[in-house]
Simulated scan of single mutants.
Amino acid sequence: MTGLRIPDVRRSAVVCSVVAALLPAAPSAHGDMAACDPALVAGAGSLVGDYWRSKGEETSVYGCPVTQETGFPDKRGSVQRFRNGQIAWSPNMGEQNLLRVYRKSGKINLRWGPTSRDWDFFHVRWNIDAQPDPARDVQRRVARETPWTGSYAFNPHPGVSHQGDKYEVYNFSFQGCDRGTFGSTCGPWSNVNIHILWRS
């Protein structure tokens, strides 16, 4: 497993629990980011933790972790939620592949890679409010940054009112594609998706 240390598996909760878990933590009384809880910081050897540390830890666009890194009962991979986004390890796209999402400058920012092979371009797909429904899926073709990495940013539309609070939960996945003489050929979708809550 390329040295990745995965914590104990925890089963996914129902949709309302997912939404509650994604609500951003309250800022400190002084308006500054409190020191990160060391019990939530993924240890050395974790791709997620090592990437977060390389980006500046609590000063990065992700902020402090608010959950532990969590594995899955039915597949390889892991995900960890941060104050301002999520980072997920999705090894079906490459042993070093990380899918990342965060909020910045009024936009949702999505990044991924490195994939296990080169691609000509990528597809990004998302749905809203943790309700898988192909009819509501949005898909975009995205030019590659490098043959193994990509990114996409967009302005989300206003959230839906939930008991007086307006928010939506966006759920993301991606795939790589190659151009061909008679059309495009695409690989599998990332099988570890990530989520982010957007509040209006």
Rank of each mutant, 00 (worst) to 15 (best):
T2H: 08
L4V: 11
P7Q: 13
P7N: 15
D8K: 15
R10W: 04
S12M: 10
S12P: 12
V15N: 04
C16W: 14
C16N: 08
S17Q: 14
S17A: 09
V18S: 00
L22I: 05
L22G: 10
L23N: 05
A25Q: 06
A25C: 01
S28H: 08
A29W: 15
A29E: 15
A29V: 15
G31K: 09
A34G: 13
C36N: 04
P38R: 03
P38I: 04
L40F: 03
L40R: 05
A42S: 09
A42P: 06
G43E: 15
A44V: 11
L47V: 10
Y51T: 06
W52R: 01
W52L: 03
K55Q: 14
G56M: 03
E58Y: 08
E58N: 09
T59E: 15
S60E: 10
V61D: 13
P65W: 07
V66Q: 04
T70F: 05
G71C: 09
G71M: 03
P73N: 09
K75T: 06
R76Q: 14
G77D: 01
Q80W: 02
F82S: 00
R83H: 07
R83Q: 13
R83N: 04
P91M: 00
P91V: 00
M93Y: 01
G94V: 11
E95T: 03
N97R: 07
N97D: 11
L99G: 00
R100W: 07
V101C: 06
Y102Q: 06
K104L: 15
S105D: 14
S105H: 08
S105V: 03
S105L: 03
I108D: 02
L110P: 01
D118C: 04
W119P: 02
F122W: 12
H123F: 14
H123L: 08
D129K: 07
A130F: 13
A130N: 13
Q131K: 13
P132L: 08
A135V: 15
A135P: 07
A135N: 11
R136Y: 05
V138G: 01
V138Q: 14
Q139G: 02
A143Q: 03
E145Y: 05
T146K: 15
P147C: 07
T149G: 01
S151E: 13
S151T: 08
F154A: 02
P156E: 05
H157E: 14
V160H: 14
V160D: 15
V160Y: 12
S161V: 09
D165S: 11
K166G: 02
K166C: 10
E168F: 01
N171M: 08
F172T: 00
Q175E: 10
Q175T: 02
C177V: 00
R179P: 01
G180Y: 09
G180D: 09
T181M: 13
F182C: 00
G183R: 04
G183P: 04
S184L: 11
S184R: 09
T185S: 15
C186K: 08
P188D: 06
P188Q: 07
P188S: 06
P188T: 07
S190L: 06
N191V: 12
V192Y: 10
V192I: 14
N193D: 13
I194V: 15
H195P: 00
L197C: 05
R199F: 08
R199L: 12
R199P: 01
S200G: 07
